[in-house]
């Protein structure tokens, strides 16, 4: 009798499950923060926490400190980066040496770890693993590493020792390309990590201080190097490097004459960056750097995404920042939205 009852309930349950699975029902919103823009605010220097600002896709509403609102706790000091994967987002608090995993749509905390993080910077996902760049002591060039965590549980697995000052990283095929900005010193390398063997298989030399990197639709790796600043012992200027990811060779190197460009982004087939107070656009087949800017604005960071340019402004680094949103068609400022303190990164949910 017990078995028949069990079978009956199983049968009834299956009807419910099937009926709930009908495709024609409207999809429920996955959370308050779906379909929006997330700003990672570093937060104040010294004391206090980084925060996340949510902006709706139509720019009509925004909300500061969403992580704290949902989870009633702080993320940690200097929110360095945010990384999406499936339903999750990974947040890295640099000074607090903390990695937090949240549901990217509800922002509810799912896991957090402080293990094996030392000056953590950026993350990338490959084969269910989270690869996190770490500077270690920012002036020590020998203790830098990429830490590997289970992307689901954040359980630490292993580390790969790498060259000085690993910063942003990007996945293509079975490789992770790591830009070595050089911590609080200077470096000029891209490491190639084989995802399967978890080892550095190649090192590509680029310009000084490679700070951002993107991959275009033809699988070229583009690396923007800022050059050594004017307060370095010897100032150098920026370069934009185009790297063939089959041969691992720099195919074209574009030199900036006397400036320090930053923040390379790639959207709708074009490259964008900021340089000397302006935003520039360049086609991936262009043989020269663009001579004129498209928008006369610059900021703490500049990111292009699908028809818009987002310029963040940290103001005096001790008050609310803002993000200025320009329409890429009209080149006009469309919106200015207040953010948390030192808005560093813009992410599209």
């Amino acid at each position: 009798m017990k078995i028949s009852k069990f079978l009956l309930s199983l049968f009834l349950l299956s009807i419910i499950v099937v009926s709930c699975n009908k495709d024609d029902e409207p999809a429920l919103p996955k959370g308050d923060y779906e379909n929006g823009i997330l700003i990672a605010n570093e937060g104040p220097f010294g004391s206090g926490s980084g925060t996340v600002t949510y902006i709706s896709n139509d720019f009509s509403t925004s909300q500061n400190s969403i992580y704290k609102t949902v989870n009633s706790e702080d993320l940690g000091n200097i929110l360095q980066s945010l990384t999406f994967n499936n339903e999750s987002a990974y947040l890295i608090a640099n000074v607090s040496k903390r990695l937090v995993k949240v549901n990217r749509y509800t922002f509810e905390k799912e896991a957090a770890t402080i293990e094996n993080l030392n000056n953590p910077r950026y993350a990338a996902i490959a084969s269910g693993k989270l690869f996190v760049t770490n500077w270690g002591d920012s002036s020590d060039s020998t203790d830098d590493y990429v830490a590997i965590f289970d992307a689901e549980t954040l359980v630490y697995e292993s580390s790969i020792s790498v060259d000085f000052g690993p910063e942003k990283l990007i996945v293509l095929g079975n490789n992770i390309y790591v830009a070595h900005k050089g911590g609080h010193g200077y470096n000029n390398k891209i490491s190639v990590i084989d995802i399967t063997s978890k080892a550095v298989t190649k090192t590509i030399e680029v310009g000084d201080i490679p700070s951002s990197l993107v991959i275009d639709n033809s699988n070229n790796l583009w690396v923007l190097c800022g050059g050594k600043p004017n307060y370095a012992p010897e100032e150098t200027y920026g370069t934009l490097e185009k790297i063939n990811t089959s041969t691992y060779e720099v195919t074209t190197s574009y030199d900036f004459v006397d400036s320090h460009p930053y923040d390379l982004s790639y959207t709708n087939g074009k490259l964008y960056y900021q340089n000397s107070g302006g935003v520039y656009v360049m086609g991936t087949s262009s043989s020269t750097l663009p001579s004129a800017s498209i928008i006369a604005d610059s900021g703490y960071s500049v990111i292009a995404n699908d028809g818009y340019i987002y310029v963040t402004d940290a103001k005096d680094y001790a008050s609310s920042g803002e993000v200025r949103i320009y329409n890429l068609d009209s080149k006009q400022l469309e919106n200015t939205i207040s953010t948390g303190i030192i808005p560093g990164g813009v992410y599209f949910n």
Partner: peptide
């Protein structure tokens, strides 16, 4: 000493 949420940092 460090700060919330991770004094071990």
């Amino acid at each position: 000493s460090g700060q919330l949420p991770n004094p071990l940092a």
